[in-house]
Design a protein around this nucleic acid. Sequence first.
RNA 1: GGGCGCUUAGCUCAGCUGGAAGAGCAUCUCGUUUACACCGAGAGGGUCGGGAGUUCGAACCUCUCAGCGCCCACCA
Length: 877
Amino acid sequence: MLEKNYNPKEFEEKIYEKWEKSGAFQPDMRSDKEAFSIVIPPPNVTGVLHMGHALDNTLQDILIRYNRMLGKKVLWQPGTDHAGIATQMVVERNLAKQGLTRHDLGREKFIETVWEWKKQSGGTICKQLRRLGASCDWSRERFTMDEGLSRAVRKIFVSLYKDGLIYKAKKLVNWDPALETAVSDLEVVQKETVGKMYYYKYPLEDNPNEFIHIATTRPETMFGDTAVAVSKDNPKLKHLIGKNCILPIANRVIPIIADDHADPEKGTGAVKITPAHDFNDFEVGKRHNLPMINILNSNATLNENTPYAGMTTQEARVKTIEELEKLGLMEKIEDHPMVIPYGDRSGVVIEPYMTDQWFVDAPKLAVEARRAVHDKEMEFVPAVYEKTYFEWMNNIQPWCISRQLWWGHQMPIWYGPDETICEENEEEAQAAADKHYGKHVELRRETDVLDTWFSSGLWAFSTLGWPEATEYLKTFYPTSVLVTGFDIIFFWVARMMMMSMYMMKRVPFKKCYIHGLVRDEQGRKMSKSKGNTVDPMETIEKYGADALRFFMASSETQGRDINLSDSRIQGYRNFATKLWNAARFCEMNQCYSVKDFDIKNVKFPINKWIVAKAKEATKNVTDNLNNYRFSDAANAVYQFVWGTFCDWYIELTKPIFYGDNDEKINETRATAAWVLDRILIILHPFMPFVTTELWNNLTTRKVDLIKAEWPQHEVFGEEDKRVIDRAVEFISAVRSLRAAMNLPAVAKLTAYVKASDVDLATLIAQNNLICNLARLDKLAPLGNMEISKDMVQTVCRDTTILIPLKGVVDFAAERERLNKELETLNKNLDGYARKLNNKEFVSKAPEKVVAEEKRRQAEALENKAKVEEALARIANF
RNA sequence: GGGCGCUUAGCUCAGCUGGAAGAGCAUCUCGUUUACACCGAGAGGGUCGGGAGUUCGAACCUCUCAGCGCCCACCA
């Protein structure tokens, strides 16, 4: 017996354990069925589940479960990411609590500590994914720093290097002074701020009483100035080109050069050039072969190339201004709106910084990655995201992949006395070096590690065993679909495309489903600092994982952000309760007691009706899932379960179950059980827990629900829905009339019906059902009976329903009701007439549309006549 | 500056190929019934941001105006 109440806590975790233990998540490799695979976007190994994960993984699990039920060979490949910067930061923060830095430990010991930390806290998010119901094949769990994946990283690195697609260069890069590492363009976030614009002047060398006027937001960088630029088209300043000026404080002579970077309209028209600390100036410096003076230490304090060595940039700025004022060179300071780059992890100001770094030739790799999407080898869903993808790929810059961190894949680069060697391991590197030099030489390994996204870029094939030609790789690559958020398109999707096209010559996934962000109830972005985050674990605790999942699915309309809504999640918990109670109803009525009943043989109208509706709902869910229309799919099940099965079918079965027609009872029991099973099947991908619990408790089963067959190509005929559809409409019409007339539910009424012979017969045949649900004691043909003024009337299609009220009719109210009805009818009739009198409409619109319009007009005319009749009847009361 | 979206019921949002405007929540009225009050029945509520155009027909296509948002680049 089912418990009286739906209580997800009772069974969700138990069910999951059973699934996992039974190997239900593992593909049957012996099967020759079509393969379906998804690689999970690997969460940070030390991360905890947030609502974004809940959405992302719910969608994946729906696709995985659906395809598994379709009988495919299904793999959901799970794993975690070492998340270089993020993880290193966490561990360093922990060390800081003990007053230690990573340097106190040294590289080796520090890395050991990180592994230790990973061991401790690394499992959290995977446990949480289990709680959500994610049916990943955990036996294949991978980690981006696993031996196998590390080997893949080294192999592809060497390959790229030898193909000239990885190179080292001294370039200006984004430098994070807190982490003391280079970061990529994508890891820099630009923030609007109100800063200051400083106007001051540099004296000319040949006449110190003449000046060139400068405007800058960063006066402290002047010690790195190696020129001042003006535009050759600047009539006011071009006479200065070729002269020199004196850099105050430093007292260094620098040239005034002509360069179009200097916009006559901006600032003073003259711009100081600091090639080592500004991306534009760097380009100018290259054009004019200017010296590049680095003025910063790696922690962004000023270095000995400046008079203010050791000061922070802020301190140096204050000092510089003071000095300039003393020298009488300072002119004015204005507020100035500007954008300042911050590190997305560290949150500190990013400095353009000249260092040796390693780059991937992304522009070259982008060519194939672009083509594959262009040729639809990989398709974005929704398709608009390919515009974002192309836009970025078309403007792609070399990708800085070296990080001056300790936690990550150390680059497989060794330096000999004057040679750089790239091999997969030390032995090979040594051998190559020895051969090159003709003797044994000492090698020094590059200390930089790789950007985390380098190894994630290989995820689609490295997790499947590459570089080995494994069975899994052969079977599941390319994967079927990648599900991720739009914020990851550049970081990950694009990199995976480039890496996969380069190494595998095939796309990593055939489809890429992009979803939006989960926001808070007011549509604001969730963030810890705002304090508006909601922990999915708490939601699951409160409403169950199924409710949260269903919320995610039903809210997911392609590509749009989702606003979290507690009331909606609660609503889906209620939905699960509703289903639970419907199942209890079936249980109480011994629906599962009927053996050997073939659903193809149903005879009775309500059963034929619900079978047809169930098939319709199934098709609806199937079609929508096939098109990644999660909300439509979820809503189709919801609507069928609650709106059709519970609200109508169960109500319709009651008079049968409470009656004494055994044949009817038996067939209805069997049908109810069949429909409930069908519901459990099509709802399972969305709500795997409650459906499984019910599946297992209602009767003994030959198959587990997780592997139950998804109904496809059903051969039995299209059952007649018309009879019950008519009854439903009829009942609704009577109920509506009762409510409008304020008739108490206890009052049993008689309804007389005027309709065509066919309709009449149809309705009378369902007499029992209709009377029960519409609270009538009698349903009879009007026949030749005279319509009295005491009858209230309503129309439903071409059927007129008349209910005698024996003196209780409030004629004024009734007149008002009828008049209102008449008004609507007239309005509609105007519309029909306007259309049908329009010759163009009649001649140009498809025949079907015209016919439908005519039918509506005829029906409305008929109804109008009936209403007018009724009004006439009570005119004098 | 470049790109991409959004504006539909009080709220949050659906509406896929143009053919009588939908859901959930909220609101109002009423509740006979052992599946369910985490419930049932009924109802109200929309010039589909403004304007113009294409079309027999526009929430949907085109143009335009207004407001909002996101991404990328840049601002001495």
